[in-house]
Nucleic acid binder design. Sequence first.
DNA 1: CATGAATGAGGTTTCATTCAT
DNA 2: TATGAATGAAACCTCATTCAT
Lengths: 190, 190, 190, 190
Amino acid sequence: MSPRTEQQFEDIRREKVEHIKLCALQLFAENGYDTTPISKIAKVAGISKGLIYNYFSSKEELLKEILISGLKNFISFLKIEEIDRIKREEIIAFVDGNLNLLKQNTDYYKLYFSLVMQPKTVQLLENEMRDVFGQIFEKFIHYFEQQGEDQPYVKARYLLAIFDGIGIHYIIDPERFPLDEIQEILITKI
Amino acid sequence: MSPRTEQQFEDIRREKVEHIKLCALQLFAENGYDTTPISKIAKVAGISKGLIYNYFSSKEELLKEILISGLKNFISFLKIEEIDRIKREEIIAFVDGNLNLLKQNTDYYKLYFSLVMQPKTVQLLENEMRDVFGQIFEKFIHYFEQQGEDQPYVKARYLLAIFDGIGIHYIIDPERFPLDEIQEILITKI
Amino acid sequence: MSPRTEQQFEDIRREKVEHIKLCALQLFAENGYDTTPISKIAKVAGISKGLIYNYFSSKEELLKEILISGLKNFISFLKIEEIDRIKREEIIAFVDGNLNLLKQNTDYYKLYFSLVMQPKTVQLLENEMRDVFGQIFEKFIHYFEQQGEDQPYVKARYLLAIFDGIGIHYIIDPERFPLDEIQEILITKI
Amino acid sequence: MSPRTEQQFEDIRREKVEHIKLCALQLFAENGYDTTPISKIAKVAGISKGLIYNYFSSKEELLKEILISGLKNFISFLKIEEIDRIKREEIIAFVDGNLNLLKQNTDYYKLYFSLVMQPKTVQLLENEMRDVFGQIFEKFIHYFEQQGEDQPYVKARYLLAIFDGIGIHYIIDPERFPLDEIQEILITKI
DNA sequence: CATGAATGAGGTTTCATTCAT
DNA sequence: TATGAATGAAACCTCATTCAT
């Protein structure tokens, strides 16, 4: 048996990291971060408690990595960087994307919303969140300016608030919340 | 120096209960329920840990009472029971009331939003919440029906979602969130 | 049963603190700081693990308090503050005191010697130790200056080193180490 | 490109063993045995954790080998076996050697002193230490007997204690401790 | 009614050691 | 020979809750 190559080790690491993050995300979303012990994550992931600490220096670090991954996914999925001419179609695509993401990544949003109110989380992600939401926010403002709205700042804030309102309500009651219909209304209004 | 009457005792008791609840609410809102120890509540309230257990059978019970008080306050402040003719003015009054409450009771909303995603909380308040929001929801539906909207259910859902979106964003950044301007927009739309 | 008075609480605290410190000192001295678990201290002290954390914020804090108590005891027993004229009798009294203390407080010295080499300990007690040993050291220098020695600094360093050498050897083998005879030799030389 | 001879393998092995021991010694001396994880030794040595266990059956075994090597070095450097006529020059050479060794092997002494108080260490090295120090001790006694001292046993004990006192103080503060001057004083006294 | 000492279950984290590759 | 993933025991520490006073 020849020793494993560096590549093999890296593969193992990456897979395990993803697996742990996924299990943890589900549990955090379902039961809350503080009320989910590491031991439970380990059990669900089918590994030992100790191994988690091979990959994440602490429970908080694990949380942070999950949240940051979610943000990155958000950015790449919505192609936020690429929206530069801020046309109507792009905004609509963004709205669509946002709500589609909500359907696909319910767990992430659940975690996100349950933590976003706590100062600890905000500190944890301060820079990352400022970056992402700052960008989106500016694009919305520009869009409303272009549209000739009189209070572009207010409108942008309002629209972002509506997104989160929809997000929360969908997450609380995904079965019955009429996401598709509301999506249409929202797009119509824009 | 006559011994206190039963009424006086009752008053003292009620005052103390309210005091504890208020302190606990602030701490829960600021640091989260799970990360706020009873000992800290006791310290802030200026009493001993043990005494809290004279008034509340457990930490969870304390949380529950806080949440229910908040709901009751919500109900009475918005006079939900009395809205029966569901006229436009009443809906507007409701919207105004709701956002005013948000400004006054920021702590409560902070706690509420940080917990509302967790199944434990939902269980805790299942009945109470169904009552309150069920009522509001029905009234909204009726209102939109009256207005001749084609999807009153969807619209009602949407409006409630918007409320919570505004709530969350105001709570996260109360200094800069343009609550008053958005309030106007919202009323205009209705 | 009337509630306990503040005085009673304070008495309990002081007693428990002393009891825990004593038990911990013995165990630390016997088995080393790092290899003595809190659980063992609790067992020996006849209390629960948790209670130790009522009185000491961490294991390291407990260690620190033990070491500082030892230093304070050292200071008061040897009346270091009062030695100001630095006469021969006083130095002799100091030597005697020092070695007597060694006999009585073997555990403390054991702990002290086993930790004094580790940077962590030095950091923990930096200020306290500088104070105490700085004073002693200066008095020794003055004494040797008075005696007309040509290298008072070197002599003072040497004497302190000898103390510690004797200390260590006595501690390692208290049964057979001829402390009394060496004490006499030391005094004769001074 | 001929395959390595057994001798070459042996050399490689010995070199690696020495390398690991050296790294471990430095870390143990700096941070303490118990607070130095194997993983850190591996990292500093530039090898994997697992490989350490190819050369040493356990962490304790590694410690033991380090300590025994130190003792052997001590013996061979001071040529303890060869001191048989116990003349004054030999004792002086021993004193000189001892203090020179201290300057060169500070790390070893640091480790040695930090562990020598703990029963575990004493057990680990019981036989070896008895041999070495027993021999030295006897020679000192003989020397003092030869010199006509009235308490040769006490004097020998005293001298050994002084060595260790000097050692400790030098280790704690190698920059300022006047080792050379004290060396002279010591030799003068003998 | 009021206190805080006391408990004990359970949480996070560390790390010596093993082992598949 | 060499790697580091993986384990599991055991460490430190927290805190809701109880209870004697």
